[in-house]
Amino acid sequence: MSNLTSSTENRTMLVRWLQSIKNINWGRALVILVPTLWLGVFFFIPFLVVFKISLAETAIAIPPYSSLLEWNPDEAYATFKITLGNYLFLFESRFYLDAYLSSIRIASISTFFALLLGFPIAYMIARSSANMRNILLALVILPFWTSFLLRVYAWMGFLKKNGVINEFLMGMGIIDEPLVMLQTDFAVYIGIVYTYLPFMILPLYTTLEKMDLTLLEAAEDLGAKPYQSFFLVTLPLAMPGIIAGCLLVFIPAVGEFVIPALLGGSDTLMIGRVLWDEFFLNRDWPMASAVAILMLIVLVGPIMFMRSRNKQEEA
């Protein structure tokens, strides 16, 4: 008797299961396909197009590049023309190489200072009371919501020759002549640290908040001085946050355009700016594409590294 009911139960469950499979599949496929297709068409394929055009020559035409495949109707053959000239030129001319190196240098220095400034803030937030913590976190995030362009602009008014800082320092009698700060690499560092500071603080805060404070007490009981327990306990435990924060600052900073354009001098060489000028001023689309592809190659390492770390954390 009980066997019979359980077998009918089994059968109804099976039927229901089959029905639900039938129901799910279409909906499921659609839900998966729509965002995948969108990102495929508007995120992935564009890179293939950029790669293709980086192998073309610039031409006086609309659009201003040569096509790789040319069909010759009279002779009925197609010529396939690609050129590595753009890439060769990238490596031959010191200009582009210098721009890449100087982007990496500027991004690294700024990342370091963002870490130096962000760590104490994240530490303080993680150690304050729950109510205070929410307020401080909101204070860190709030500037991030306001316009990035306008925040960079605010620094122009701050750093310029008769700007707020110079007026203040001269008013205090600390300096006699205004300091030249705007249109220097120094201003670019400040701009990057300022803009990307929340990206540094948030991952740092997440790891510091999870930290087991009894470990610090243990270190103290065992006779560690505060700086020792900081370098031997806190810092190693905060490492995942430090790495995540540094990557989140470094990667976008390498390709930054607005900050060097507004705060940097004419000699502040950054690759994002070079790409922009190549495209908007020289109208050399193939060259701009080659610059973009090489920038991607430079960034693929850090991006893959970040992704693999995210996966480890998920697992």
């Binding site: 965002p35 390709g255 922009w276 973009a292």
Partner: peptide, 30 residues
């Protein structure tokens, strides 16, 4: 294709704007 999709979802977050902008423009033109 799950790995592919998760890659496509996270990559735009860190992609420099100049690359995203240029690549989309070239796509639209093509």
């Amino acid at each position: 294709g799950k790995t592919l999709l998760s890659g496509w979802v996270t990559a735009p977050l860190v992609m420099p704007d100049v690359i995203t902008g240029l690549s989309l423009l070239l796509l639209f033109v093509a």
